[in-house]
Amino acid sequence: MRRTHPLISAAALLTMGFLYLPLLSVAVFSVNATRYGLVWRGFTLDWYIQLVHNEFILEAAWNTLVLAVASTLVATVFGTVLAIGLDRFPWSKRTNTFLDIVLHVPVVIPDIILAAALVVAFGLLRALSSVFEPGLFNMIIGHITFQIAFVALVVRSRLVSIGREIEEAARDLFASTPYILRRITLPLLLPGIVAGAMLAFTLSLDDFVISFFTAGPESVTLPLFIFAAVRRGVTPQIHALSTLVVLITVILIIGMERFTRK
């Protein structure tokens, strides 16, 4: 085995530290038995217990969950259908390139631009119906708009790796298109769909910008709550809450990795 230069190891360690020390320190402070200061005063789970008794936090957690589940469900269905349509329909080369760009736009566009666009769009829609008042419904739609592209990208890469020959074999064996979809394409695609859904879920879970621009007074989510709370001063509860959010995200990401590797 080749030995790595000590400088490279050092740079790698520093990078890891840079990325993870802030998260780690938040986690440490969330179990530190002191309200203020940077001194370690012993281990406690008080801050976590207090979280459970805080009505606002519970409501925000519930809103976050509803938002993430609803938007992920819709985005997964649309994203999967979109991916199948993009990959399996015999588009001309030029159309294909165009669609590829369109698909990548929501991924690379800054959140703030998308959020501002949504504000404008909902403003116009409000003239048609009061459903589009700022609130959870708008937030769900907002999250779906960027989640679809992520789901479609993940599912499409899986479609490409499956290839077409297996579907051709199924057609050769007298299968109709719906039968192929049900018995061959979707089962083979399932890991990709689940991975896409998990990615969409984590994106929704910790989204701040889109939520901030589309939320109403009744629809505070955890990221919005944390943002508001931090402006009043960082409390150990916030540390505990942040740690929990990070933990859930990490678990979901590990789960997604597991699924896609299969």
Partner: peptide, 14 residues
Amino acid sequence: ANKRQVNTVFQSYA
């Protein structure tokens, strides 16, 4: 293909 009484052994077996 699904309406023909013809079946194929694919190169990659598929």
